[in-house]
Amino acid sequence: MNGLSLLAQLLDILLALLLAPLLTGWVNQWRAWLQNKTAPSLFQPYYTLHKLFHKELIVAHQASPLYRAAPYIVFGCMVLASAIIPTLSTDLPLAPAADAIALVGLFALARVFLSLAAMDVGTAFGTLGARRDMLIGFLAEPALLMVLFSASLISRATSLSTIVEGLAHQTLVIHPSLAFAGVAFTLVSLAENARIPVDNPTTHLELTMIHESLILEYSARHLALFEWAASLKLFAYSCMGLALFFPWGIANAKTPLLLLLALPLLVFKLAVGGALLALLETFSAKMRIFRVPEFLATAFLLAVIGMLITLLLTPFGKAA
């Protein structure tokens, strides 16, 4: 562990914290443009966070300490998640603490706390949201794990740094499995980030909301933390997708100077990705909740097929 890798780690976390709301703002802006609306400012998420942090907090009479701790725990999980995903460099001191499986576990931990907190006050919408969110979770998590496994079968590792390094710095080889995994990953990240075919981030229509109904009881700083955590999650998923499927330009231990190049490249990739996400959301319509299992099962099966293809195409004897 040297100074430079420490710097990369700090930069990784700070960048995630600062850029995440910007990415959300960027996606919202594009969506407004695509839908012929006047777009809010690019910095609207920051204004909202600032406003929410200033407000007075109102907590239901019967809320338990779990309810009050949950925003901080979920936020902490998301910060750690963005710390271990290689965004700028693969040489991260925190990376050995958690590999791809532990990353999925981290997202699951955040989801469980969010759902438990939503059930805590005991309102109709909170429990409904918890149930729906866990429904999405139990379908999306295995699919995400399968996507990561398809990638890890290529470099025979589950450590994210090694996977990304293997994908980024090899001679150009086409992995057909990654095509399947890529589609699966897109479907999963739409579901996990409460995006349109599965959930609508702007809805407040009671019967259709999922993520919004989970945080319905929350106000002020708690809500701000949840909003921030949600943008962090979107940022983390985007970075994970970029690192797996467009890994070029990420610095590693041998090429630390690439950090300078990696930052503008990342911003460029995120900008394109965000616009594409807005496009995808504009073109599709929200589906009924009981269509969601089909949608996610598709992702799951695609990822499994991706893994099978990796194994089929691996010449025998080369493995292990």
């Binding site: 725990i73 710390a83 589950t158 450590s159």
Partner: peptide
């Protein structure tokens, strides 16, 4: 091998807890 996979629960827990406390 550490390259292929590793998991450090204590660092993991410290990471989540310290991030939460810092947020607080």
């Amino acid at each position: 091998a550490q390259q292929s996979a590793s998991y450090g629960p204590i660092i993991f827990l410290l990471g989540v807890v310290s991030c939460s406390l810092l947020a607080y």
